[in-house]
Write a protein that binds this DNA or RNA. Sequence first.
DNA 1: ACAAGGATTCACT
DNA 2: GTGAATCCTTGTA
Length: 205
Amino acid sequence: MEPAPWPPSRTEAFFSRSPFDVATDLLGSRLTGGAVVVELTEVEAYGGQADPASHAYRGPTLRTEVMFGAGGRVYVYFSYGMHHCVNLVCDEDGRAGAVLLRAGRVVDGLAEARRRRGDVADAALGRGPGNLAKALGATLADTGTTVWDGPLRWTPAPEGPRSTVCFGPRVGVSRAADVAWRCWLADQPSVSTYRRHPKAPPPGG
DNA sequence: ACAAGGATTCACT
DNA sequence: GTGAATCCTTGTA
């Protein structure tokens, strides 16, 4: 049974908490982009000016301004000259924070997702942040829109038991690589395989 | 292990 | 204003 969307005020309250808390609670919830609906299976929390791996680390800029606003907004950035990555802004207005959406399982709109992504296995359609953004059809223009009236709509997780939540280091970051702010659902084939940043210092040292 | 690839940001002038 | 390093990645080797 598809859960009804929450009203904007409740949705904004959900996202106006710490990125770590929001990240954990996002697992199993859903994001809709056009005809494509994905269940989020892997996310990473990013802090503000105290998190060296966050885009907001050096304070607000033209690009990262949205991260300092109220929760429930979309932040899309363009990475490595070819990929888009979708974040959902967290924490209270004035404090930077976001959750990077790293992977999701396509639960509806399979044909549309494949049209965007090409002919790949179902589990690979939304595996990895760049691929997930592509499957959702997210673009830079989505930045600043809300998840209750924008092109990307969020709905809470369905009732009932959820897979075990696992925690581990974030992917692809060269600084603060060993903070366990990545979380994912166990036994989900859509979860990306871990790749440490090439320039990240060795673990534990 | 590495290249493709474009925007952002910083260190300079 | 200009040049260079960096980057929340992916697919192929």
